[in-house]
Amino acid sequence: MKRVLTITLFLIFNLAAFSQELDSLKTGEKYSITDADYNNDSVEMADFMRSNGKIYVVVGVILIIFTGLIVYTISIDRKISKIEREVFKEKVNS
């Protein structure tokens, strides 16, 4: 089992390195992000949204939706735990 895992991991890393090589072959040289990219004002970003503080509203909406989904998932998790306790206790007794 361990051998299979080692071989799989080895293959994945090799393929990742291989595809990186293909990338650099294709483009000649890689684009790397520098500090200038953070201060570049010529590219349009959502500064307007942030200047009015509205982006926080969107973040809030996403967080509320995410929290709702997680709360629901947790409730399913608890329900399954409850059934598990009932079913598996029954099996041991019978």
């Binding site: 992000i33 990219d37 953070y38 201060n39 570049n40 004002d41 590219v43 970003m45 982006i55 926080y56 969107v58 973040v59 996403i62 967080l63 995410f66």
Partner: peptide, 14 residues
């Protein structure tokens, strides 16, 4: 992820 991914500075790329 949601907080930092939405609010932190990101590179300004065309």
């Amino acid at each position: 992820t949601i907080l930092a991914g939405m609010l932190l500075d990101v590179p300004r790329l065309s």
